[in-house]
């Protein structure tokens, strides 16, 4: 049931809107999003925190139903959960009662893969992800970067074709983050699975994506789509130094900062449901502007 024999071709959000019901009150999170992602694309999504990025993922995964519009997979309206999706999060969400190997095979377990087969694939993956020798370690014994590699491997090992990565490197220090970005670029190159990658870091969005979707503050919509033309395979240092990169970045920061300053404040003072969030969004956009230099 969970495995699908058809291969993934497209994910399309058509006029998708969403509202949360919070104690009888409706909180609009997504005003309307149109988006199409094809097989083997690497799409990044940037937007201020709290704007509805994770909600968008939940809609694409079929964990939430849109209150307007439609989610289509391979041209068909999505019912139930999306059979092509595997998730990864900012907090590695590793199980502390399992060691690294046990965590890495979790997805395969859920998919009902035979134990021996899962283990063999996991051992191979651990070597590829630079985690050999750490099979028996516990999550809390690992560095932040290694934890995220374990989580990424777990997601990769599901063999799912549409990877939804929700701010996976958001909690890492700058250097580790750069290493992980390069690692993901290289890993993506090998089998070119479709990736949608959420971040609030403009540098990261431009470095990784073929296309950057820029989202407005909540309730969100697509502010702009930025095509990123850097050749693949990409080298992080080269891309970050390219003059086109700086240009695109300036352009995007303008969009994000101007937008969060003009639209966010009245909403923040009037709506009790998300105190502090708009201000936080504004701050993070500015931090990101400074962090890349």
């Amino acid at each position: 049931m969970s495995r699908s024999s058809d291969r993934f071709e497209t994910l399309a959000l058509k006029g998708v809107g969403h509202q949360f019901r919070a104690g009888g009150e409706l909180v609009p999170t997504i005003a309307g999003v149109d988006l199409e992602v094809g097989r083997s694309e690497f799409v990044t999504v940037v937007g201020p925190s709290g704007c509805g990025k994770s909600t968008l993922f939940n809609l694409a995964a079929g964990l939430l139903r849109p209150t307007a519009g439609q989610v289509k997979v391979n041209g068909e309206p999505l019912e139930g959960t999306n059979p092509y999706v595997a998730y990864m999060f900012q907090q590695a969400a590793l199980l502390e009662w399992r060691d690294v190997l046990g965590n890495v095979v979790l997805g395969q377990e859920f998919l009902g893969m035979p134990k021996g087969e899962a283990r063999a694939a996991a051992m191979e993956g651990l070597a590829e992800f630079g985690l050999s020798g750490f099979e028996r370690r516990r999550a809390w014994e690992l560095s932040g970067g290694m934890r995220q590699r374990v989580a990424l491997l777990r997601t990769y090992l599901t063999q799912r074709e549409l990877l939804l990565l929700d701010e996976p490197f958001g909690a890492l220090d700058a250097l580790t983050r750069l290493q992980m970005q390069q690692f993901l670029l290289d890993r993506w190159q090998r089998d070119q699975r479709t990736v949608i990658f959420i971040t609030h870091d403009v540098d990261e969005a431009l470095l990784l994506g073929d296309r950057v979707i820029v989202l407005a503050p909540r309730p969100t919509y697509v502010l702009a789509t930025v095509e990123v033309g850097f050749e693949r395979p990409r080298n992080a240092e080269e891309v970050l130094r390219a003059p086109e990169f700086t240009e695109l970045k300036t352009q995007m920061l303008e969009m994000l900062v101007v937008d969060s300053e003009s639209e966010v404040e009245p909403d923040g003072s009037a709506n009790g449901s998300g105190p502090g969030r708009p201000a936080e969004a504004e701050r993070s956009a500015r931090q990101d502007a400074g962090s890349g230099e």
Binding site: M1, S2, M88, Q91, L95, L106, G107, E109, F110, R154
Partner: peptide
Amino acid sequence: PQQALVFGRTLGAGWWQLFVKI
């Protein structure tokens, strides 16, 4: 941990599996 549950749910894990394993 909600995210571990979400990870499982997207892979088609059933109620019992999530209960026992997570």
